[in-house]
Amino acid sequence: MREERPEDPTPEDPVVITPCPNGPLLVRGDVMIAPEPGAEPQKPPRRVVALCRCNMSSIAPFCDGSHKLANFRTRPPRYNIGSPREDADESD
């Protein structure tokens, strides 16, 4: 049986940022990146980018895997981003 299709997503799908434990921030979605404050924003060459968090990358602001050499350790998220939204209780 086919399920009813959900509403088409809005054209402005939100950008999703995922902090990877001991690694970079993964950024999915239609983003522009300004290399530094005041610089012209540019479109990254891929759909998902990894932003450096350890400050060791040779291609900053992107990740180049150097966090592993630096034995970089992140703290677990302390701010509860994922608290349930008021409208999340939609069982039907």
Binding site: R46, A50, G65
Partner: peptide, 14 residues
């Protein structure tokens, strides 16, 4: 590949 695989590594592992 330096840039792409730093992304792929996270997606592929997790």
């Amino acid at each position: 590949h330096v840039e792409a695989d730093a992304v792929h590594e996270q997606i592929a592992a997790r």
